[in-house]
């Protein structure tokens, strides 16, 4: 908004009245977990889905500083970086209780930045699809990849192996830098919003707050995300919890912190 002759003027582009019709082969970006109805439609139509929350282009994050403050959630800075480089036909961005206010504001930025339909969704789906990947024995990196990939289809996940007994816990959102996941053993169970993601109920705050008090757990949040408060709160409630926030990349001292925490709590790094 700016003030002109004493009147407020909206300088934002009008949101394209989105009678957007998905066509086969359309390149569609998604942010967060759009409602099942949207994912089903995209999948049925044969659109090519790009998860904009994940790093998809090799470009300098600094390029986003014209659009977002440098001190901002790295996932959403990644969204903007991806959107700047991928030639998309439309973006579905979840801005409801299943994502965050920051995403809502980024949708405004995207509307102004791109000349394509930016469609805001509010995913309040209640039907749980289960979270077997969160509990299976598999490298945490691989588990996280499969869970985030699963957002792009309307089906429940079905890992090959059954649930394992957990030796450690990872609570939180999928990190911007997956490399930190390599520090955890394969018997790490996933909790928090990532579990809600696999369950396809991203607004399920009760499920998000679940943790296992019997296993040492890292409570992770992206720096500058509102979920840092919940992560810190739950870490303090957990008998063996450690709060951790990471911005764009995991520094060596943060990596050492994870390693030391697991080691000192007697968590073996068992091979998968």
């Amino acid at each position: 908004m700016k003030v002109e002759n004493g009147n407020m003027v909206n300088t934002l582009k009008q949101q394209k009245k989105s009678e957007y019709t998905i066509k086969p082969g359309d390149k569609v970006g998604i942010v967060g977990v759009p409602p099942l109805s949207v994912i089903s439609k995209l999948s049925e139509t044969g659109a090519v889905i790009f998860d904009l929350d994940e790093p998809r282009v090799k470009a300098d994050m600094e390029l986003t500083s014209n659009y977002l403050p440098r001190v901002y959630c790295a996932i959403l800075r990644t969204v903007v970086l991806n959107a700047l480089h991928l030639e998309l036909d439309a973006v579905f961005i979840d801005v409801g209780p299943g994502k965050c206010d920051c995403a809502f504001h980024v949708s405004t930025v995207l509307q102004d930045m791109l000349n394509i339909p930016i469609i805001r969704t509010r995913n309040e789906d209640k039907k749980g699809f289960g979270y077997p990947l969160c509990r299976t024995k598999m490298s945490l990196f691989e588990k996280m990849q499969q869970i985030t990939k699963g957002v792009q289809n309307p089906f429940p996940s079905s890992p090959d192996s059954p649930p394992c007994t957990p030796t450690a816990g990872f609570w939180g959102v999928p990190p911007r830098d997956f490399s930190l996941l390599n520090l955890f053993p394969c018997t790490t169970h996933i909790y928090g919003w990532t579990r809600c993601m696999e369950n396809k109920t991203p607004a399920d705050t009760d499920l998000e707050a679940v943790f296992n008090p019997h296993v040492p757990t890292i409570f992770f949040a992206q720096s500058f995300c509102a979920k840092t408060a919940l992560a810190k709160f739950l870490a303090a409630k957990h008998p063996k919890g450690l709060y951790l926030d990471v911005d764009v990349t995991c520094s060596s001292s943060t990596g050492a912190k994870i390693q030391a925490f697991l080691e000192l709590n007697g968590v073996p790094h068992a091979p998968c």
Binding site: K240, L242, S251, S253, T254, A260, F261, N265
Partner: peptide, 21 residues
């Protein structure tokens, strides 16, 4: 080069931090 700490409660590891930035 850096500072780091560990804190213990009731003989158990409670928190830790490492600040190299």
């Amino acid at each position: 080069r850096d500072i780091k700490y560990v804190s213990y409660k009731g003989g158990e590891l409670d928190d830790m931090g490492w600040n190299s930035e």
